[in-house]
């Protein structure tokens, strides 16, 4: 049985060290913020200029000037700080953020990631993703294993325009956890009842 979104989020959280700093991308990774146990002492960074995000506000505390990079309203905890975009990306580019978790359209065996455009069809822009994949100490991709068409999203080589070259450390999908290594994909863990053949990536498995 494949992992649901919450189980995927928990698998990612299991990779976080105590008291680390984490940046969460738009989409699937936003689930993580609400599931991190406070006992881990983790500081959540959002690149629009806040460190110390702690879940959602109430009707009474909600503020239009307090948002995350997905432009959603958030709350902050004790020890939080605000700063401008340059300092925020300095934290990322300077290697001060321990983990970033991003969604993906494609990732490949070389650790390349594509998640910002489909030529001639859809352009969202890269936002902060290109900076994050080159700056965060550990880059985790959290995405569904297959596209809407049923094609595997972990490939030998990405065919969409890249977000970053040789930058991905870990990939968590609904079917398992993987690591690009030496041009192949190493299986770290499979969801219960999932077999290697279910992954549809025989040729690139280590």
């Amino acid at each position: 049985m494949s992992w649901d979104k919450n189980m995927m989020a928990d698998k990612v959280i299991g990779l976080f060290t105590d008291h680390c700093s984490v940046n969460l991308g738009i989409g699937l990774p936003t689930l993580i913020a609400e599931r991190i146990p406070s006992s881990k002492g983790i500081m959540i960074h959002s690149e629009n200029g806040v460190l110390g995000v702690s879940g959602r506000p109430t009707k009474e505390t909600v503020s239009p000037t307090l948002i995350n990079a997905g432009k959603e309203t958030i709350a902050v905890g004790d020890g939080a700080s605000y700063f401008d975009s340059s300092l925020s990306f300095g934290m990322i580019r300077g290697g001060h953020i321990d983990f970033c978790v991003l969604g993906g359209m494609q990732a490949d065996a070389k650790g390349n990631l594509a998640n910002w455009m489909i030529p001639g069809h859809k352009v969202t822009g890269m936002g902060g993703a290109m900076d994050l994949v080159n700056g965060a100490k550990t880059v985790i991709i959290m995405m569904t294993h297959f596209s809407k068409n049923g094609d595997p999203k972990i490939l030998d080589v990405c065919d969409l325009p890249l977000t970053g070259k040789e930058v991905v450390d870990i990939i968590v999908t609904d079917l398992g956890m993987f690591k690009p290594h030496d041009g192949k994909i190493e299986i770290i863990e499979l969801a219960e009842g999932i077999d290697k053949t279910d992954l549809k990536m025989d040729t690139i498995l280590k």
């Binding site: 690149e47 401008d84 975009s85 340059s86 925020s88 990306f89 993703a129 290109m130 900076d131 080159n134």
Partner: peptide
């Protein structure tokens, strides 16, 4: 890229003409 965007603007204000960054390589 957003970090490069911020830094290109900051650079202009700080009198820095250009900079090297791994972002986008």
């Amino acid at each position: 890229p957003q970090g490069t965007f911020a830094e290109r603007i900051r650079a202009a204000g700080m009198g820095i003409r250009a900079f090297y960054t791994p972002t986008g390589y």
